[in-house]
């Protein structure tokens, strides 16, 4: 196979110049992943610690409800507050996971990508929200098995520490999403946990008479959370999110 022959072959097979190549290639887009795939990937990128803590909480719920050691608890409420005191930390992990982009200064780069910051944050909120919802529901079912409070009251007893921590953390992080504010959130979570333990030892708070306060607190917290999430998404849309403004 000499060079001359090769060139001759190339010439022999030459075709008339294609006329529509430029236009076609200009409009041809390399296929991109679907939004569903994107969600899947975001799920994979959520740190394992969140799921580990969730599993741990469920394990606690199980132990508290069914293990023999706890059958001797003379106070019904003790079972509940033992578990609900840990929930603030689930909230802490969830919320700090959502704000990862700000903590690690990836927000600017992520905003310029096809699946931008708003979509990433939305994806995280959806995935983690669903995860938390499942954990809470399962917890509810587990504890309900061994307590006489009834599902309704239990719901509020479990929800309140969770919701309050959530609204406090979101409030803090919406103001300033730096690493320092993360410590503020940790403090808030700790505080709620401690208050919960104190209340737990004063059993009258778990009596039927006080139920309406729990309901009120839940409602207030939910409203606050709704507000904060709305704010958060608005910030990512308006692109005012904690940029490293160096100029």
């Amino acid at each position: 196979m000499n060079n001359k022959l090769k060139m001759g072959l190339q010439s022999a097979f030459e075709a008339p110049i294609p006329k529509r190549k430029a236009q076609f290639l200009k409009t041809l887009r390399y296929p991109k992943i679907s939004y569903l795939s994107f969600l899947g990937y975001q799920f994979a990128y959520i740190r394992k610690r969140v799921w580990l803590l969730s599993a741990f909480i469920l394990l606690m719920g199980w132990t508290v409800s069914f293990s023999a050691a706890f059958q001797n608890f003379h106070m019904e409420a003790s079972r509940v507050w033992t578990v609900s005191a840990i929930l603030p930390f689930l909230t802490l992990l969830t919320v700090t996971e959502i704000f990862r982009s700000a903590f690690d200064c990836m927000a600017e780069l992520e905003t310029s990508c096809r699946f931008n910051l708003s979509q990433i944050v939305m994806a995280r909120i959806s995935i983690l929200g669903t995860g938390n919802f499942i954990v809470l529901s399962l917890l509810l079912i587990l504890i309900n098995r061994s307590s006489h409070f009834g599902i309704l009251r239990l719901t509020f007893y479990l929800l309140v520490p969770y919701l309050i921590t959530c609204s406090l953390c979101l409030l803090i992080l919406n103001r300033s999403s730096t690493r320092e504010s993360m410590y503020g959130c940790a403090a808030a979570a700790g505080l709620v946990g401690i208050i919960n333990m104190i209340i737990g030892s004063a059993v009258q708070f778990y009596s039927a008479g006080y139920l309406r306060y729990w309901i009120l607190l839940s409602a207030a917290a939910i409203v606050l959370i709704g507000f904060q999430i709305h704010n958060l998404l608005k910030q990512t849309e308006d692109k005012t999110w904690n940029l490293l403004l160096t100029e």
Binding site: Y30, P31, K32, I33, F38, E110, C113, R114, F115, N116
Partner: peptide
């Protein structure tokens, strides 16, 4: 790979 995912590139690519 993370940024590639954000830019919508399929895994192989």
């Amino acid at each position: 790979l993370y940024i590639a995912m954000l830019k919508g590139l399929p895994k192989v690519r």
